[in-house]
């Protein structure tokens, strides 16, 4: 947990003046970074296209507009902030550690947005932590043969 928090600090410092100007600015930035950004926000620049055999430009098709039943609003607990692009650019996925530093009581680690704002320690917390990464919920109501309980045997 401590190491993850340190990583967050590192990345914050690497941002330069963003988080160091004042405590108020720091808290504000932390608040902005809580939550998973919806996929229709600005994407970081794709300056590099891996496996460049084709040399084709990568499509910027990350918009959820085409998602028939899974608009970000369907799972409002993960849509949250407008800081996603910056967070992704600067590797602030572990920024949750900031909140933990200020409020180590895990009873308050679940944000109103539904993500885990303290340093994660178990799978569920890692998977749902407030990272600032874009995400796209899938509406499990589309799984018509599942009642939300135990999955039936194949």
């Amino acid at each position: 947990m401590l190491r993850l928090a340190n990583l967050s600090d590192a990345r914050r410092v690497q941002l330069g003046t963003l988080a160091l100007s004042s405590l108020a600015a720091f808290v504000a930035a932390g608040a902005l970074l809580i939550g998973c950004t919806s996929a229709d926000e600005a994407s970081p620049p794709d300056a590099f296209t891996p496996d460049r055999d084709t040399g084709a430009e990568v499509a910027t098709d990350g918009s959820p507009d085409g998602a028939p039943d899974a608009a970000p609003g369907d799972v409002g607990d993960e849509s949250a902030t407008d800081a996603g692009a910056d967070a992704a650019d600067t590797g602030l996925a572990a920024e949750a550690g900031d909140a933990a530093d200020a409020a180590p009581d895990t009873a308050n680690c679940r944000t109103d947005a539904g993500c885990w704002s303290c340093p994660p320690t178990v799978n569920e917390q890692f998977l749902n932590h407030c990272s600032g990464l874009s995400c796209q919920p899938f509406d499990n109501k589309r799984v018509t043969k599942w009642d939300g309980g135990v999955l039936p045997p194949i």
Binding site: C36, A39, S43, P44, D46, V58, A59, T60, D61, G62, V75, D77, E78, G84, A87, A88, A93, G114, C115, N128, L133, S134, C135, Q136, P137, F138
Partner: peptide, 12 residues
């Protein structure tokens, strides 16, 4: 509670 890509966005 939300699906993630291997990258920070679908296109990065």
């Amino acid at each position: 509670s939300c699906g993630h890509w291997p990258d920070s966005t679908a296109t990065s």
